[in-house]
């Protein structure tokens, strides 16, 4: 077949294919971009222009309904504002952080490992977690007779530096001989949660590779008494600086026995 002939049988294909595709496009633009929003907007008392802008996504809201308004002024439970720069600087340990950390030695130990089990270990803790707690102590979102004063004496930069410093410090070694035999139901709570109570696994936030909320602290290598006291505080609403009641809502569903056993589990078990 000659090229001219080939072109001849090909031409209607090109023309018709293009016509069909363009008409379908035109059809969906006419209905989706114009007719539907205009008709829906009229019923909702919106002018045609607003309705079309909403349908196309230039204005928020549905073309068929009025937007609700809000003049809310609720007090947040924490004043921390996250940003990428903040997260990045919390990953960089500087000499300045070690200097600030001198103020922590008395309660949290020379290397961030507390001698008194009522106080938390800081060495190896997530930098984001330490930052958030110091920020909350400073703003008063979390209450502690000693820590509020100390945090108010630190500026924003110092809080970042000291948090990054402890995050980079080696955490407490566990003595495997102190590990108790763990109850099966506690392991289940840690690894599987309890569907009947809507309790997610502890591991789904606190596990090593959980990907949970960014300010989640590491619990393993922490002190038993400290952990138990915090869980009780969350449960009784004595501590309420967790964002969106993430921890209060969990602690509220735990029993006394579970709180003690969980605190013990995290204080003595290596693998989490």
């Amino acid at each position: 077949m000659k090229p001219a002939e080939l072109r001849e049988i090909d031409r209607p294909w090109r023309i018709w294919a293009s016509i069909i595709i363009v008409s379908i496009l035109a059809f969906s633009v006419v209905f989706g971009f114009l007719i539907l929003p205009i008709v829906q907007g009229r019923a909702a008392g919106l002018d045609a222009f607003t309705a079309i802008c909403r349908a196309v996504g230039i204005l928020p809201g549905s073309p068929a309904v009025r937007q609700p308004t809000s003049e809310a002024k609720a007090q947040p439970t924490t004043q921390v504002a996250w940003s990428t720069d903040l997260i990045r600087s919390l990953g960089q340990s500087t000499p300045a952080g070690a200097e600030v950390a001198q103020a922590c030695v008395a309660c949290h130990g020379e290397r961030g490992i507390a001698a008194d089990p009522q106080n938390p270990n800081l060495a190896g803790q997530s930098g984001v977690a330490i930052y958030k707690q110091l920020h909350d102590y400073k703003s008063g979102s979390r209450v502690h007779e000693v820590m509020n004063g100390i945090a108010q004496g630190l500026d924003g930069r110092q809080i970042i530096d000291v948090a990054a410093h402890f995050a980079a410090s080696p955490r407490r070694d566990l003595d495997p001989t102190t590990a108790e035999v763990v109850d099966e139901d506690i392991v289940r709570l840690v690894e599987r949660g309890d569907p009947a109570r809507g309790l997610p696994a502890c591991n789904s936030c606190h596990g090593f590779n959980a990907g949970g909320p960014m300010e989640t602290p590491t619990l393993s290598h922490q002190n038993r008494e400290y952990l138990a006291r915090q869980l009780h505080a969350f449960r009784s609403d004595g501590r309420r600086n967790d964002i969106y009641t993430r921890m209060r809502s969990v602690a509220a569903k735990l029993t006394d026995r579970e709180i003690d056993k969980l605190a013990n589990f995290y204080a003595t078990t290596l693998s989490y």
């Binding site: 379908i24 496009l25 969906s28 989706g32 929003p37 349908a55 196309v56 996504g57």
Partner: peptide
């Protein structure tokens, strides 16, 4: 995060 108009367009196809 996608508008109803473009959803309609893609629904047609």
């Amino acid at each position: 995060q996608q508008s109803s108009a473009f959803k309609f367009l893609q629904m047609s196809f």
